[in-house]
Design a protein around this nucleic acid. Structure first.
Lengths: 234, 234
DNA sequence: AATTTGTTTCTTGCATGCAAGAAGCGGCGG
DNA sequence: CCGCCGCTTCTTGCATGCAAGAAACAAATT
């Protein structure tokens, strides 16, 4: 799985117009979101400049933009570190993620086109075989698609931006592939509730189903990560 | 009313540590959010450098951060312009604002402390006199306070950040003081529904009431602005 | 021995310089 | 008369240089 598409710095649409600063920002964001640069790690300007064969200027500009996006923390005159997310804040972000997805579901229930509804339904049905055969990786792909389809279906680019940004910031903490095996069937049933509500245009029901679904998942993930957060405190 | 606190660049907590770049970013964000720099306006690096008596470097860094935050648009090799918000996107943002506030209300209904509930109730009751005397300015202040108290009451700093950011970006379009007079009593009743739901711990009810409240307000504002958006296109 | 202060070194923040694109313009051709 | 092409100029993007602040270290004093 390539995390690059999670990055809101991958401005590679239309007229890409690559500039060193933007490439650096995208590359660093990617490494951070993938967890290759651990939270708390100090990012040295010179070191990065050497590594990417550029001067310190574009490095500084990229770091500044990452700081504005919240991926790194900038202590004036004291350097830049990869943002450290406290367990508290992690819980908050998961909670907001659930709320945002619930909102997207509500909007999607009334805004989706017939084609979008069909596509969502088809994808969801297809995922059922992955459940039957306990193919976790396949299901995970369907799971991604499920959420992405709903993001698209809400027809609200601002909400999609918020969702993608939040999802990206949570990405490093999802790697855990937390015992999805045991939840495969349950997850599908939860998805089913969301899909049915959306198909019948029940926004409120879709929102509630999605919120419940994510509250379960988020809870587990947050617990899991919180338990081992010490490794990030360094 | 000073808009500085609306800016997410006003990182003036703890160790302020002023750096020219951060001051520039805050100052420019402020001017943009106040509408002093019209959307579409081209921001010349040299000109800004002269105006703020600094070199181009901090100006460039500040602009890069504003671009990362979405307040300006960066066309590589072609300069930076103040972000233009289409009527479409404006509608979307208002819709998301309503969803976010609804979520905050839901969370507040269960997370608020006894003191916070008392404070909300007291403030809301006090605002009633402003309605009786049709004192719009007073009511507007209470209105602000009402929303701020709910932001605080949800006990979720990430959600608060999203709310503040969205509210800030919408600020330039709210200036319109759209015929609040006629809505004074209605607004208070809508607030009343939210407050009652929160006080009785009814998250779902609070969310619904808040969403309805904001859908009314947002709709009006969006219409109003869309109608005269041409002035921003140029 | 511990703490504090002075010094050294290293990093950051900003200014400046230079080269590569982009916009504007004049001339040429259709 | 209009459109296209090369040139000029201006702006941006990046590199480099320098000074101020912070961290690290050492020495001296209590």
């Amino acid at each position: 799985m390539h995390a690059a598409n999670l990055s809101f710095f991958a401005r590679t649409g239309g007229a890409p117009q690559r500039t060193r600063t933007s490439e650096l920002a995208a590359a660093l964001a990617d490494e951070i979101l993938r967890g290759q640069l651990a939270p708390g790690l100090r990012l040295d300007e010179q070191e990065l400049a050497q590594r990417f064969r550029v001067s310190r200027t574009p490095v500084r500009e990229a770091l500044g933009q990452l700081a504005a996006a919240g991926l790194v923390e900038h202590r004036p005159r004291r350097g830049v570190i990869v943002a450290v997310i406290s367990p508290q804040r992690l819980h908050e972000m998961f909670a907001v993620m659930a709320e945002l997805e619930a909102s997207a579901s509500r909007l999607a229930a009334t805004a989706m086109t017939a084609e979008e509804r069909q596509g969502l339904d088809a994808s969801h049905r297809a995922s059922q075989t992955a459940v039957h055969h306990s193919r976790i990786d396949d299901y995970e792909a369907f799971n991604q698609e499920f959420h992405t389809r709903i993001y698209a279906g809400c027809h609200n680019t601002y909400l999609r931006d918020l969702l993608n940004a939040t999802r990206a910031r949570l990405a490093p903490f999802r790697r855990a592939q937390f015992n999805l095996l045991g939840r495969l069937a349950a997850s599908w049933r939860e998805h089913d509730a969301v899909v049915n509500a959306i198909l019948r245009g029940d926004g409120e029901g879709a929102a509630r189903a999605m919120r419940e679904h994510l509250t379960v998942v988020s809870g587990a993930a947050a617990e899991y990560v919180s338990a081992q957060t010490h490794q990030f405190i360094a």
